[in-house]
Design a protein around this nucleic acid. Sequence first.
DNA 1: CTGAAAGCGCTAACAA
DNA 2: TTGTTAGCGCTTTCAG
Lengths: 318, 318
Amino acid sequence: MTVSRVLRNRGDVSATTRERVLEAAKTLGYVPNKIAGALASQRVNLVGVIIPSFGNLVFPEVLAGISAGLEETGLQPVVGVTDYSPEKEETVLYEMLSWRPTGVIIAGLEHTDAARAMLENSAIPIVEIMDVDGAGIDSVVGISHQRAGRHMAEAILRAGYRKIGFLGTKMPDDHRARKRLAGFRAGLAEAGLTIADEEYYAGGSALAKGREMTETILARSPDLDFLYYSNDMIGSGGLLHCLDKGIDVPGQIGLAGFNGLPLLDGLPIKLATMDACRREIGIKAAEIIAGRPHSGVIGGELVELEPRLEPGDTIRKS
Amino acid sequence: MTVSRVLRNRGDVSATTRERVLEAAKTLGYVPNKIAGALASQRVNLVGVIIPSFGNLVFPEVLAGISAGLEETGLQPVVGVTDYSPEKEETVLYEMLSWRPTGVIIAGLEHTDAARAMLENSAIPIVEIMDVDGAGIDSVVGISHQRAGRHMAEAILRAGYRKIGFLGTKMPDDHRARKRLAGFRAGLAEAGLTIADEEYYAGGSALAKGREMTETILARSPDLDFLYYSNDMIGSGGLLHCLDKGIDVPGQIGLAGFNGLPLLDGLPIKLATMDACRREIGIKAAEIIAGRPHSGVIGGELVELEPRLEPGDTIRKS
DNA sequence: CTGAAAGCGCTAACAA
DNA sequence: TTGTTAGCGCTTTCAG
């Protein structure tokens, strides 16, 4: 009835009745039931967001971006966590789609067949984020981790390093880390080089882990002149280890990480890294979901952001 | 009809029809509509979670706990962000309640009157988290920041420090930081002391900020023998500054932060801190929401967790 | 064990 | 400008 019109600010209501309704609503403590509203209008102000984990600093930053991008749109994110498990992703996705959200933002391009089918059939905007190396379903916003790895390799070689070690996570389902490493290898290969030694770990990214691993790899391969880390946290741990041991960075050994965590500015010297554009990715993804109804875009957008190399102080000037 | 019974595993369906239904559902790519389901059954598998920000590391950790606690319950978190604004909290809350969630988890005990009224009238379990210093609406899970501050003051005094400086955020709506400071002041007052100098900043917690502030306060008050920081990030920045300048920590000057970020283990020496039990708070809050229907609890639970003092290496042994 | 029927609380179209 | 009327796609209850 009229009440509905008032509460939704749809025109054609006299100021008087409007007042009366608003007052009644307030005194009754009336809160509309969006479930019924959504059912009737076939519109839902929820956006499904699926990420692997809250533990990796990167995802909260993306969420912050999404949250900011959704700010004035009346859309709310619903977050699901997969723990890097494709099966769990499938479950969470099913759960979300059953709420008929306005759109879905999902990390990564790798999904089970069933998940992919659900996304394709959902008839809502889908934005796969973080990664552009592969085929997307609808829209894609991210960076090329492969090229990020390659560029880092090139920068390192340009600076004259030759005996290069890699330190990263063991996680087989972290496709982005895997692609970065592949790109890195490819970059080295062009100069006829391969990774001289590598060290893997499981578990969260942490300074202490980085220290440990660095100690291990340097004990085993003391002649390494560069260490490439799969993230800034372990990279910074490595940096601290080197400084502790009085190793000359970047002279004797160079270091680089990945992510561009602003968190860590303020270490004695600044770790070389590559910005993953986390926040921008979130904002852009949110905009695509929010904007789709307005713009008449049908096909998905592909937004490739450019990770900036931040040379810091741990790569020798070439 | 029968289909509904199959999909929800409610008994009384023959194996044969069951098979048929399941198969049909699969080939049609059928995804049930929870909106309709929720409307009909008056049950919603969503839990509203309201936090001030994703930017402060603390909240993603709480979310991780909530996410873990909700894991096997079939409940999904819906996250809303307030940016530390009470008005925005009110809006977000209204939005959430209109989805008739199973429960609401909300950070802090301070809300606008309207928000408080909504929570009280919602007739669903409400868990206010992070803080127990004040009156809760229903359940409360957190630590006493006041006592955390006081305990830190006591530990510092016990170690023999006397000229104590405080460095923290300016944010007037960060009630927990404010309470910590109040408790800290009270602890000092018992020994007839006051804070000798203080320095405030706005903006995210970051190492670099901590360095800067520490330099500033020490330039102004070179005779300080202890610095208490409102969080571990700026505290660690301060620590790095002191190490850089060759200041003897904890001999000449002691340092302490707050939060117990495991992230930062691995710094040259370990900052004294107090664990805020972030993850446990999330888990416990989730359990309360999830468990309420089972247990016949009516009144709210009050769960006060005990922040552990982690003395690290930056407080002189007393 | 299975089918039929009556809503859940709204919105959208139409009539008044 | 306002009131009336059908549903939205399920769950629930009650017969068969």
